[in-house]
Design a protein around this nucleic acid. Structure first.
Lengths: 344, 344
DNA sequence: TTGAAAGCGATACCAA
DNA sequence: TTGGTATCGCTTTCAA
């Protein structure tokens, strides 16, 4: 083998454009970067030359010398891109980003703390302009040294610890209260709560709301069963099966998350108890209205969450630095469809 | 405001590392790029200097001069990141990419041709290493001039036109045949097919399969109703309502896509015909097994599709050039759950 | 309003 | 096995 032919395609450079337009390269640079002090006629000639030559500025070359470099990309950390809740957030963010010609990197964490850090590292290394993250780790202190001080960060769905930044999340306490109060209002006194691992902030918040509603109705927490550590559908299904097999079993269930809800519905159906045990799920699921009975849920607004988070991120990006951290709480909506209106 | 302070952090450069290690910069370059011809002792000294100075090579500077530049990112074009089918593909690809430290950009096209081209442009401009795309445009000829000749491209879910590259898709014709044959086997003779716009390749393929099965059973295509241009749930719901309002209405429905299936189920329920009109959907949907009757579907294997597509992309990337285009057809699975086993 | 010259931080080539 | 030097394509600086 002799000619290892670099085969580099004959790139069009700024120099050729400048020559074609009969100006200096600095003037071409001014035009493409919308800098002031270019005569309209000159700018027009330059633009014509750019079009004729089909020149595209080389991003690497620009960013090399530039002080404030933008990759026009953002990093998004989610539970899983395959989870409908996360996917809806993702789409909402993409819809805002695309208007600004910003591309979105997404990464699935599966609630594993190490993956959160690895993903942040990976995105920072790729020099994303900003980060939107659903945190999985116990503390976000690591962000202080990992993320450049001017890079905007927005937390979505969960509040961070040891790191101050914008946060957007559902009214978890209020939503769980609403669900629980709804069941209590229908006469239930033996309730169960099914939640994910307590390391997860939303699980803790929803538990707080559940307990607050019980207290409000003067129902002792001792009469309630709380099953935690339910991180997938199968675990939830097994938990409900066990739950209902004991004497004085709960007559109503609050599910703390969409996967748990689906698992619970499966269990109730298999046991033939779906017309008998009340169920309210946190977060809506597809086809919930077509089940028999319809599935009552406290619906979140993932699209709104994504939109608000993206707006906030771009606001920081526009001002050129992080805005003072603010927290935005998104309301939830109780949707009665049948399963939550069953009496004990 | 006075000091617009560039605030550029004092960057560590390769020069300082070379000085510290007592070598030339080219030797440092050799070490970080694992090039041959470096004495082990020298390499060790260089590595020590890199660690001490915490030097990280500047990606922009490297990529500027480098001929074969890798950003360790790939672009993924999907129907919508919020559609469960697309989202599952996305996740499968991410799971493979992450092992190679490759990040994934995703873009939702909503089946709009212009967005396909815009998304490809956006990704090429960001110098992704490869592209996986569900095409929405009529022709992919544009890729020839838009995409660098060595950049690997894999089509997923749909076959491209006017551009040869790897393709991964379901057995659409076979799947539609399977669904239709299933209904014909239960005695149905007046069938309806609900599909998306015929510009979409999968819609055309599934129509072919539907017609083939009819022919196989000696049923004239004239007795069948084909409703096309159904691109969302509402349209499907309306179509089914209209469909069943005429005399000699179809007794069985084949739905060509997940959104259409959900719309059809809604219509049947609203009309109270769900125990009466048979339905087989293409592509599985969440909770399908808990409906009454259960929803019979021809399930696709989105996870397998994503995995195969990603494997193929990385195989091309590993060899350093596009592999000869190959087509991989992924099997589908008929899952009988009740709605497809209703007799006329 | 304009442009010439001096980098930016790495890689490529070639001589030592 | 090494390292000097010429780039890479653009932004910055500064003088015209």
């Amino acid at each position: 083998m002799t000619s290892l032919s670099t085969n580099r395609p004959p790139r069009v450079t700024i120099r050729e454009v400048a020559h074609r337009a009969g100006v200096g390269i600095k003037t071409v640079s001014r035009v493409v970067n919308n800098e002031p002090n270019v005569a309209p006629a000159t700018a027009a000639r330059v633009r014509a030359a750019i079009d004729e030559l089909k020149w595209e500025p080389d991003a690497h070359a620009s960013n090399l010398r530039r002080t404030t470099t933008r990759t026009k990309s953002v990093g998004l950390l989610l539970g899983s891109v395959a989870n409908p809740f996360s996917a809806t957030i993702h789409r909402a963010i993409e819809d805002i980003a695309i208007h600004r010609d910003v591309a979105v990197f997404a990464s699935s964490l599966d609630d594993e703390p190490e993956r959160e850090i690895a993903a942040v590292e990976a995105f920072v290394r790729r020099k994303v302009d900003g980060l939107i993250l659903t945190c999985a780790a116990h503390s976000q202190a690591y962000l202080t040294e990992l993320v450049p001080p001017e890079m905007p960060v927005v937390f979505i769905d969960r509040e961070p610890a040891d790191f101050a930044a914008d946060t957007v999340h559902s009214d978890n306490v209020g939503g769980a209260e609403l669900a629980t109060r709804h069941l209590l209002g229908f006469g239930h006194r033996r309730l169960a709560l099914l939640i994910d691992r307590r390391e997860i902030w939303t699980a803790r918040e929803r538990e707080r709301g559940f307990l607050a509603a019980l207290a409000e109705f003067g129902v002792s927490a001792d009469t309630a069963t709380i099953v935690a550590d339910l991180s997938d559908q199968d675990a939830a299904e097994r938990a409900v099966t066990t739950l209902l097999s004991v004497p004085d079993a709960p007559t109503a269930i609050v599910s703390g998350q969409n996967l748990i809800t689906v698992g619970a519905v499966h269990a109730l159906r298999r046991l033939g108890r779906h017309h008998d045990v009340a169920l309210v799920g946190f977060d809506d699921v597809e086809l919930a209205d077509l089940l028999e009975p319809g599935l009552t849920v406290v619906a979140q607004r993932p699209q709104e969450m994504g939109r608000v988070a993206a707006d906030r991120l771009f606001a920081s990006l526009d001002t050129g630095h992080r805005l003072p951290p603010a927290a935005k709480v998104i309301p939830v909506d109780l949707i009665p469809r049948g399963s939550g209106e069953i009496r004990p």
